[in-house]
């Protein structure tokens, strides 16, 4: 199972700091999280980047989720 860690911003919608999720890919992951925390649909989670085991992915739509992955959502970073 992958472990999802929620930022302070997302914790407002989940009420929890982390949760374990079974998901093969990003789409399943998002679906599972929305099922578990319906209020997340009011958040910007689907617009956020994701770090999968520390590797930052800005466009995660087609990403596979490793079985024991550590996942963090955060806002997209650009630069100057």
């Amino acid at each position: 199972m992958a472990m999802v860690f929620f930022s302070g911003e997302l914790q407002r919608f989940t009420g929890e700091e982390k949760t374990s999720v079974v998901a093969l890919n990003y789409r399943e992951l998002l679906g599972e999280l929305h099922n578990k925390y319906p209020d997340l649909k009011n958040s910007e989670i689907s617009e956020m980047a994701i770090a999968i085991d520390g590797e930052i992915v800005h466009e995660p739509l087609l990403e596979l989720i490793p079985e024991e992955a550590e996942l963090h959502f955060f806002h997209f970073i650009a630069g100057g």
């Binding site: 860690f5 930022s7 770090a51 085991d53 520390g54 590797e55 930052i56 550590e70 963090h72 959502f73 955060f74």
Partner: peptide, 15 residues
């Protein structure tokens, strides 16, 4: 000092 494995406040651990 932050190094490989350090937990960041924004989420992921550093590579």
């Amino acid at each position: 000092a932050a190094k490989e494995g350090t937990q960041t406040v924004y989420g992921p651990k550093l590579k």
